[in-house]
Design a protein around this nucleic acid. Structure first.
Lengths: 261, 261
DNA sequence: TTCGATTGTATAGAACAATAGACAAATGTG
DNA sequence: CACATTTGTCTATTGTTCTATACAATCGAA
């Protein structure tokens, strides 16, 4: 059933890189095309002048009917990436990708300060629960030890950037959730508990399709990709104080690792 | 058109994490389900005993017809993730994710040595071309300076892991492609040109859908995700010697960043 | 105002995806 | 063997996606 998929190629970038749509793949053509246009815009290889080529031209490049291409554009208009004006053309609404630095001193707001006008984090939920095995291992706690779980959403310039689930030792940090809710900052909340500084020990990066909850919180459409960073933060004594699993919107964020050993 | 999508949820993990399929989203149900099963296997929350639940059970969990679920399984069988046996059940063929370390001393084979039986890199193509703007910038060369481009494929245990495009200063490293073809190692090829050691300066990590070429080379099915690492390597003097854009199969690889400041 | 270029709308048919029900074929067990 | 369990195949129906063609509406320039 899946061995007969056909692929047609298209040079969208003008730089030798080929883009393509694959038929009978389980992913609708209009969605594949929407993903590629979004990516090309982000890479600057399409709409660099703020305007997209006409629908007829684009549909020929992708080798699909004009209506199929229009579905792709409609999806991107709904996402806020494009804006179509009858008689004039289709225009790019937003372009740039945020570069999120990962280093020993990774903090949410700091690294994005120069790239955005405004940033904020929202506390969606908090709960005290027995630790899952991977959480207990990351924090160096006994299995099923009580941990505080924080669900947070981060936005930059009014658009969702990432969705994080963080765990903390509930015994060492009682009432952390309330302090965080007041300060809206992990760094400040840690200081309230006497931790002047903390460091990123390790980060595991993977990628997958966004699940249902992330789709909603991050305002994504189905099939969207998230970059997943599983990180451990330690205090100055090297003791794990936070384990976090953060999902970044792959279309809007890239992770920057500088390894100055 | 895209605002009327319906979402049904299913707890696949037994840990409170919900999985879901979204209808009318441009992604066929069987593909969404295939993606989720693959991910659940990789996370160990499904088929931990090597065997998948019967089709009837799974189709009820996902809230779809048995045939739809069978399409998902068929796709995973073709990928080599599952193996179905009439009368017996469906079994897990491969599970584990490779953890690819990113540090100042990142090299392909070293980090994967303990996780795999066998690794190899294949030179697919090489060419000398004028540098693209981002390549020239990364290597610190003049725009359109001649650069060598290498297209390589890396496999571990007989399965494709990553697909890289690397660029080198063609004037500093004449004949690099031939040397690399003979040694099958970037490290050894560099030594041939008097570079005893080199370091990873920076890495940008992003994620996107695999394009047509990567789909073919990495033997993926459409809609698959790749982790993209854009890296700059420098010699001991701090001069850029290699710029590489590597696409990792997101289902098989995660990137590990240890930030020991 | 007239015209070309462009996006928006409508309709119909073909190809694909999903559902439904029934039964065949293989496996392991009592 | 007889049986329950499980995957494999078949047919039919419905809804979604893609194609094809035609024309309307808006904009900007000649």
């Amino acid at each position: 059933m899946h061995d007969k998929s056909q692929t047609g190629t298209v040079d969208l970038s003008g730089q030798g890189r080929e883009q393509a749509v694959t038929r009978k793949s389980g992913v609708a053509l209009w969605r594949q095309i929407a993903d590629q246009i979004r990516q090309a815009i982000s890479a600057g290889t399409l709409g660099a002048d703020g305007k997209l080529p006409p629908e007829m031209i684009l549909s020929e490049r992708f080798g699909v009917n004009r209506h199929t291409l229009r579905s792709a554009i409609a999806a991107l208009v709904q996402e806020g990436v494009l804006r179509a004006e009858q008689g004039r053309g289709t225009f790019v609404e937003s372009r740039q990708k945020l570069s999120y630095p990962i280093s020993a001193r990774t903090r949410f707001s700091t690294g994005l300060r120069e790239q955005t006008r405004e940033r904020r984090s929202i506390l969606l939920a908090d709960a005290i629960e027995p630790a899952l095995s991977r959480v207990a291992e990351a924090l160096g706690l006994a299995p099923d030890a009580p941990v505080l779980r924080l669900e947070t959403l981060s936005e930059a310039d009014g658009r969702p950037v990432s969705r994080a689930t963080s765990w903390f030792d509930a015994e060492r940090f009682p009432d952390f959730a309330r302090v965080y809710a007041e300060t809206a900052s992990i760094t400040l909340a840690f200081q309230h508990f006497g931790i002047e500084d903390y460091f990123r020990k390790s980060t595991l990066v993977s990628a997958r399709h966004a699940d249902a909850a992330d789709l909603t919180d991050l305002k994504l459409s189905a099939g969207a990709i998230v970059l997943v960073a599983r990180a451990i933060n330690v205090d100055t004594a090297g003791v794990s104080v936070q384990y976090a699993e953060t999902r970044f919107v792959a279309d809007r964020v890239e992770l920057s690792v500088s390894t100055e050993a």
